[in-house]
Amino acid sequence: MNRAGAKTRWGHFFWAAARQLAEIARLTVLGAVRSRRPKGELVRQFYQVGNRSFLFVLVTLGFTGMVLVFQSCLQLSQVTGDLSQVGSEFIKYLVHEFGPSLTAMMLATRVGAGIAAEVGSMVVTEQVDALQMCGVEPVEYLLAPRFFATLVMAVVLSVFGTLSAILLGGFAAHQTFHVPYAVFLDFDKVRLVDVFTGFVKALAYGAAIPIVSGFCGLRTSGGSEGVGWATTRAVVFSSFAVIVLDFLISALALLTWQAA
C-alpha cells in the first residue's frame, strides 16, 4: 500500500467518499425513477417521513414565525415606524426562503437521523450483506423509497410549515404590536417566481437529505457505537447540505430571476 504522507491519504479518503456519495445518489435517483417497488413499502415510507414530522414542523415553524415577526416589527418600528408592510414582506420572505429552509433543517434532524439509524443498524447486523446475497442492490432497495417519500414530504411539509408560520406570525403581530389581521395577511407581494424559488429549494432539500443521510448510514462500521456516530454525521451533514443549498439557490435566484 502507498503509505505516503497524511495529506495524500486524506485526499484519497475525500475523493473516495465523494465518489461513493455520487454513486449512491445515482443509484437512489435511478431506483426511485424506475420504481419497481411494492406500493406498500412506499406508503409506509410516506407515513414514516411525513406523519411523524408533521406536528414537529408545524410547532417549530409556528414558533419561529412568531419570533421573526416580532423581531421584524421591532426593527421596523426603530427605523420607519410603519408596520403596514410587515405582513406582506414576511409572507413573501417565508414563501421563497424561510418556509422551505427551516422545514428542511427540521427534516434534516428528524428524517436524516431516522434514515441513518435504520440503515446503519442494518449495516451493522449484516442485513445489508444479506440483501446483496439475495441478489438485491441495497442502495436502490433501501434508499429509493425513502428518497421519494422525503422529496414529496419536503414540499408538502414546507407548505404546511409556511402556513403555520404565517398564521402564528400574524397572531404575534396582532398581540404585541396591534397589527390588524387584515393588514398582516396581505398576499399581494408574493409573485410566481417566489413560489418557484421556494419550490425548487424544497425539492433540492428533499433530495439531498435522504441521499446524504443514507450515505452516512451505509458507511456505518463498528457495532452500536457505529450507529450512533452515523446518526450524528447524518444530522450534521444533512443540515449543512441544506445550508449550502439554501445559499446556492438564493444566490442563483438573486442573480437570475431576481426573486431570491
Partner: peptide, 14 residues
C-alpha cells in the same frame, strides 16, 4: 450472488 446461499455468523435476519 443470487446463485449462492450464505449463512451469516450472526444470522442477519431482516
Amino acid at each position: 450472488q443470487s446463485e449462492m446461499g450464505y449463512l451469516f455468523q450472526n444470522n442477519a435476519l431482516f
